[in-house]
Amino acid sequence: MLIPHPLLGLRDAQEFTYLGDASLMSPPPSDDPEALERHVHLRDNPAGLLRELWFHEQGDRSWLVVTRDTRTHEILGAELATDIRREGAR
């Protein structure tokens, strides 16, 4: 697989470490233990588009949010997690 790194271009997936669902970037408020519990333990497993976290461990150490179709492995885009998190906060 090839991942289109927003700064470095197409990179082989072997350079990356996979984490999972990008929802991990948005923990709920810490005063809601039940929501935290769901956040930590429950994941959707969609057949279709999934936004997921990949770490460019053998590269520039960026965390990326990659949009992938789980049925075809087609990758529709990759963004820096930092950018997404900052935009989300605004």
Binding site: F55, A81, R85, R86
Partner: peptide
């Protein structure tokens, strides 16, 4: 060593980029 560094980068970039 590698895992904690990865986790700290996750925290820095994905949780608190500001």
């Amino acid at each position: 060593a590698g895992l904690v560094y990865r986790q700290m980068e996750f925290a820095r970039q994905c949780l608190w980029p500001d």
